[in-house]
Design a protein around this nucleic acid. Sequence first.
DNA 1: CAGCATCCATTCAGATACTG
DNA 2: CAGTATCTGAATGGATGCTG
Lengths: 132, 132
Amino acid sequence: MSRPETDEEACRQVLQILSLVGDKWTVLVIGQLHGRTLRFGELHRAVAGISQRILTLTLRQLERDGLLTRTVHATVPPRVEYALTELGDTLVDALTGLGTWAIGARAEITQHRHHYDTTHPEMAPDVRKRRP
Amino acid sequence: MSRPETDEEACRQVLQILSLVGDKWTVLVIGQLHGRTLRFGELHRAVAGISQRILTLTLRQLERDGLLTRTVHATVPPRVEYALTELGDTLVDALTGLGTWAIGARAEITQHRHHYDTTHPEMAPDVRKRRP
DNA sequence: CAGCATCCATTCAGATACTG
DNA sequence: CAGTATCTGAATGGATGCTG
């Protein structure tokens, strides 16, 4: 009874979420927002290396998906605050599970890679190219 | 005491894993491999729409990371079988958690998107463009 | 059957410069 | 401060054709 319809379905759902969260920055952003509210500039500084454009797009997407709220204070200078919604918080929780796995598996994966690279000398440069 | 070092660290780890698993096909492939062994052609058919090139690259990467094994049977015609390793199985388990979240949140997210799109008419075409 | 080599179109991140 | 506008190089995915 392995691989029932729900597995199939779950797989597609995961895919959706991964494409939603799978880009380089989204996870970092919601990670910073976990349990606190930050302004645009603060986020920009907190997520080292992100460009304004990408940060803006990332925030807009998360806002559109209902994962965070964007609050504009009509002051001078302008003040815009970002915070996770309850839905966003639950996503963080869900991702935490993956994070735990990642921490536990990291060493083993690194080791496997090294072994593979030495065992299969120049067999798959493309593969390594994709994971520097 | 929110956001201790471990959070920071976990976040990077998640990012690693997401970039490892976050592409369009990897999840589908390991999803198909969950609990069974498949040949290249079977996988190619099972994961509808994937090209041979991408399937090959995806499999190589997973093999390199120690998430699946590639067994070549020296027969004619050649027979190559792919199966998840124990590590790969644990990844599937970890992803299942995310899948569960995804299924539960899907409706709400869709609803939020719709609301956002009607509320912010042409405010963020780029955002919608990124999520058709 | 399983996969590699090639080429092409597209997407996207990132840098830079400008504005309400 | 908090974006928006624009441009460009790089990376990727996908299609096609060939081979041990």
